[in-house]
């Protein structure tokens, strides 16, 4: 009997551990698509595991602030998701993020969750030559690093203040983990 209890406890711990791993998402491939700005970035506006798990709540929370109160500098913004994750083809035009195989769609179709944002929101970043997207279009072949942790020697294609803003808030969340 004792051995059975031990076995069960072990099984439970293994299961718990597996769930924990899933939850924190330390493993798992990146869904970031090649040729998007995000491919050249170290991390999203929050740790990947957290953003994967909570992005819908974050976006929903901040959308109310934006729509109702006109707060446009929220930490999470769908426009920035699109800005970062839209992939460019060789001609330099953006592909819609909800097109097949693209960042948003690939994951949402995998987990079978209806993606309704883009019934109203723009699926591509504004203006192919806009300021904020400069630096991404330097040829698709240049950006090879697909993971969220690209090699350290890679220079990021973000401006200094953009980076500062992206990372300013992350310390609060890293404490939470």
């Amino acid at each position: 009997m004792g051995s059975l209890t031990g076995f069960r406890r072990f099984a439970r711990m293994a299961l718990g551990g597996a769930l924990l791993l899933l939850a924190t998402g330390v493993v798992g491939d990146s869904a970031v698509t090649e040729g998007s700005k995000a491919a050249g970035l170290e991390t999203c506006v929050a740790p990947t595991a957290e953003i994967r798990r909570n992005h819908m709540d974050y976006l929903k929370h901040d959308r109310d602030a934006t729509v109702r109160k006109g707060i446009r500098d929220t930490r999470f913004s769908l426009a920035e998701c699109v800005q970062c994750h839209a992939e460019r083809d060789s001609a330099g035009t953006y592909k819609p993020v909800n097109a097949e195989g693209q960042f948003c769609e690939s994951c949402h179709s995998y987990v079978a969750v209806n993606l309704t944002c883009f019934q109203c929101h723009s699926k591509t970043p504004e203006g192919a030559n806009g300021n904020s997207s400069a630096g991404v279009g330097g040829g698709a072949g240049e950006l090879r690093a697909l993971g969220l942790l690209p090699s350290v020697d890679r220079s990021l294609s973000l401006s200094r203040d953009e980076l500062a803003r992206l990372h300013a808030a992350t310390h609060t969340t890293s404490r939470g983990n």
Partner: peptide, 21 residues
């Protein structure tokens, strides 16, 4: 802790500068 954490973070998440318009 795991289920509360996102909620706690959510309240801190809104880095929006101020009260809005």
């Amino acid at each position: 802790a795991a289920s509360i954490a996102p909620g706690v973070m959510l309240t801190m998440a809104n880095a929006g500068s101020d009260e809005g318009v």
